[in-house]
Every structure is written in C-alpha cells, then in structure tokens.
Write a protein that binds this DNA or RNA. Sequence first.
DNA 1: GCATTTCTCGTACGGCGTGCGAGGAAATAT
DNA 2: ATATTTCCTCGCACGCCGTACGAGAAATGC
Lengths: 273, 273
Amino acid sequence: MSAKPFSSVWARERKERREQGLSRDQIVRAAIELLDEEGLDGLSMRKLGARLGAGATSLYWHVANKDELLELTLDEIYGEVHVPADANWRETAGAVAWGLRGMIIAHPWCIGVIGVLPSLGPNAMTAVDRLVGACRRAGFQGDDIDYAFTAVFSYALGSGLPEAAWRGANRRSGESLGEAQTAIRPMVERLAEHFPNVLERFTACSSAGFDPATAAQVGFDYGLLALLDGLDARRLDPQRRPPGRGSRRVDDTPCENRRATGDETTPETIAGS
Amino acid sequence: MSAKPFSSVWARERKERREQGLSRDQIVRAAIELLDEEGLDGLSMRKLGARLGAGATSLYWHVANKDELLELTLDEIYGEVHVPADANWRETAGAVAWGLRGMIIAHPWCIGVIGVLPSLGPNAMTAVDRLVGACRRAGFQGDDIDYAFTAVFSYALGSGLPEAAWRGANRRSGESLGEAQTAIRPMVERLAEHFPNVLERFTACSSAGFDPATAAQVGFDYGLLALLDGLDARRLDPQRRPPGRGSRRVDDTPCENRRATGDETTPETIAGS
DNA sequence: GCATTTCTCGTACGGCGTGCGAGGAAATAT
DNA sequence: ATATTTCCTCGCACGCCGTACGAGAAATGC
C-alpha cells in the first residue's frame, strides 16, 4: 500500500521532468528557442539535448538528423505567417510579404535554412497555396500565377536577407545598429572617392536621425507597393508581356560572368520605359 | 659547392610548387573553387590548405579566420556582376538584377554568406554605388533612392534563394531537378486535398514539359519588369506615395506573429488598386 | 655576420554530427 | 504471472571541425 503512492509520485515526478519522454514537437520548440537565442551556429544536438534534460543522441530517435530538425523548425515558423484564406490578391500578397518579413526578423537564422533546404512543409505550403489561389481568383492566368506569387515571395525573402545579416552581426558584436554605423563610418569615408553615391546616401540617412527600423519598414512597403502595382498592371493587361518577348535574355546560360565564362557582354535586359 | 646547387634546386622546386608562398588572392580563389565544387559545408581550412599544398594553419597568416575568408570570397564573386557605369536606371537595375542572379546560380553557397555576413567589400560597393547613382540621375529623390535600389537588390537576391536551395539539394542527392520533381510527386498528391492550388500549378508545370531553368528565367524577368514598372511609376509621380501613407503598417513591431506576441491581427497592408 | 621581420606548420584543445549497441521501461501476448 | 516484443534512452567512440600557440625556417635589412 505504501509502495504504490510512492512509486506513483516517482513516476509522476519523472513524467513532469520530461513529460513522459521526449516528443518531436517538444524538440522542435526547444530548437527554435535555442536558435532564436544563439543563432544558427548556436544550435547543436548536445546543447539541445542538455536543454531538454536528455542525452544528445536521444534526439535521434525522434528526428533523423540535424537537417531534418532544421526543416521542421523552418516549417514551424512558417506557421507563424498568417495568410487570410479568402482575401483579394493584394491583401493576400501583402499578408504574405509582411508575414515573411516578420518571420525573418523574429527568427533571422531561418534565411540560412531557406537557402539550403527546400521548403515543402505543410505550413509553408498553405501560405503558398493561399497566395496561389488568390492570384488565380484575381485573374492571373497560367504560368503568370507562378510568376506573380514567386515574385512576392522573392521580394519578401530578399528584403529580409540583408536585414538578418545586420542583426546577426550586431548580435555577435553585442552592439546596436547605430553603433555599427558609426564604427564603419571611417571605412566608408576612406572609400569616398570611389563610392560617392553611397557616401552621400549614407550621410543623408545617418544625419537625418532616422530610426533604421522604421526606415526599413517604409522602404519595404515602398518596394512592395511598387511590385504589386507592376504585377497588377500585368494581371489586368496580359498583353503587356507577350510570350517570349518580355526580356531579351531567355537563353540557357542566363548571366554568366567574366571569370566563369570570359564573356564580357552585359545583360542589358531592360528596354527603357 | 655541390650542396649549393642542390639546395637551390630544392628551393626553386619549392617555389614552383607554391609560387613563392601563399597569397591572399590565391587562397581566396582556391576557396571559391572549393565552395563551387562542394558547397558551403565542403569548405574547411584543412581541405583548403591541402588543395594549396600547405598546412591548414598556414592560412591564418593571410586571413584572420574563416569568416573573414568568406567575406573575401563573397566580395570576389560580387566582382563578377558587371554593372555599367553610365546607363539609364532601368538598364542599370536590369544589369544588377541579372548579374546577382547569375552570381547566385554560379555560386549557390553565397546566399548562406550573404544572410550572415554584411557585404561591405569594394566590389559589392561599386555595384551598389552605380545603381544608386543611376537612380539619382533618373530622378528618384531622397530616401526613395534607397528604397528603389534596395527593392531591386531584394528581389534579385530573394529570387536566387529558393533556386539555390533546390540546386544544393539536387547536388547533395546527386540527381536532377526533374527527378526530384517526380520524387516528391506522391507527397504532393497525398496533400492534394489541402493544397489544391499548388497541386494544380504543379501538374500544369510538370505536364507542359517545360524546362525548369528557362521557366525560372522567364519568371524572374516577369517579376523584374513588374517591379521596375512599379518603381518607375513612383519615380515619375512621387505623389503616389505621400510620406507616411503608403501603408498602414509603420509601427515598431512590424509583423509579429501569433507565437511571439499572441497578437492575432493580420497586417492587411494593402488597399486594393 | 647578425638581427629582425615574414611566413609556415605540427601539436593540441574543445566542440561538432552521429553510428552503434547495450540497456531499461512499458505494453502486449501467452 | 511470466515471457516477449516494442519503444525509447544514452554512453561511447570516430572522424571531422576552427583555431590558439609557439617553434622554427626563410628572407630581408643592417
């Protein structure tokens, strides 16, 4: 009689300690915590195991390997971008773009995963699916649907990319962006003769006392609206891009460079407006 | 007497073997070779040293650490994107966009560097400087210059990102994109009920017998032209974006997500056209 | 001839991903 | 109640990694 409650307490305490063993979700959540705190390099199976009160190799029962774990974390945070199911296409595109931006800012490590592992998880797929659906309903046709949704994704992901790099560098150096700005200032000035335009922009921005975070937001919105306007024009008037004439550059070696090919030709893709 | 020529031959042979010692440029070039062949994970100081016929730690005389080496390789390949110095802004933007795309395709590992290390090297700076100059000459004003050039960079980098992921995955699995497509087909079909739009697009694309590489090019061009059109419209009519009204979303926590903040609101950034 | 600078590299340390197989605990079959 | 199977954990070990350190070799300046 007395042994039973005791062992029950024991068992319960154990369950409390690791909640009846590890679970995949638990591992993924802890991995995201660790990634958010220490970045992509900060995640190791040993540290993750320690955080969960488990041995490092115990994780391998629930997850095939580290890459698979990263895929899971990536899709988990894709779940954080909220895309309405039945909105018009501009609203949907805006939600996707701002959602992706928010995801990257909250989890800057993700771009190191997106660029290496294809995103096929359910959360990423629902975001894509809803945007594709919105594009189709809006009147984009055929391949233009892919082009439009890809463009929105590309712009949003690309915007987050340098931002993530700066945030990561600042976190590693332990100081704010403003401090980094003043730190690189002498370097920028030393190169003033070669890059007058960059210098002019740099001083204009830093003298205006503009908050870089809100500046980044305004800039993101500016480009996003421009992109959506351009896509909208093509949606309403598909003739604007007759097949095979949009650009001059539709060969198979798209933009080889001097070193790789010795080819000195310039893309010169775009005719003037 | 006999010792001298012998030792001289020896010395000369040594010089021939590594061309009077290592040099920074030599190291960077070899690193890029290795990265192109084996990807970001394939670069290690030991392998790189072996490739140069040198000890691994010899490299640390010429390069502070691996991150610095990666910065150097990144700027080196930025040197491969060729931007004309005095073209109109659309030409310049097109050259930058296609050049970046070509760079990413030729060196897919670079996105793993771009997202982690800020790009401040001279080659990256000249590309930026020329695009900024072209924007300024074209009539973009004040901060709009930054917004415009950033948008072009973002779009180009973002487009390369998933492409690099796929190429990397294909290289690791050792098979082509078409084979990967058929490999994931059952997975896609199993999820058909949840993602009808994606499935429809997937089957449409794969049944058309379209070459994915040229499809990616056409799509890239489509989005690029749309973006440039949208930016052009803002250039010619800055009123289109009165300060502070472009989007509803200019607060400081731009797009927090459900998990991070508990905030369930949707961005709903964009008013219809 | 010597002193100084410039460069190479062997050794070693701590950390990494993960294959392997021995174990224990719980569920199930008998 | 016992035996068996299934599920899960984890210690050990291997071969890699980045790189700090200091001993030396080679080139250079005096």
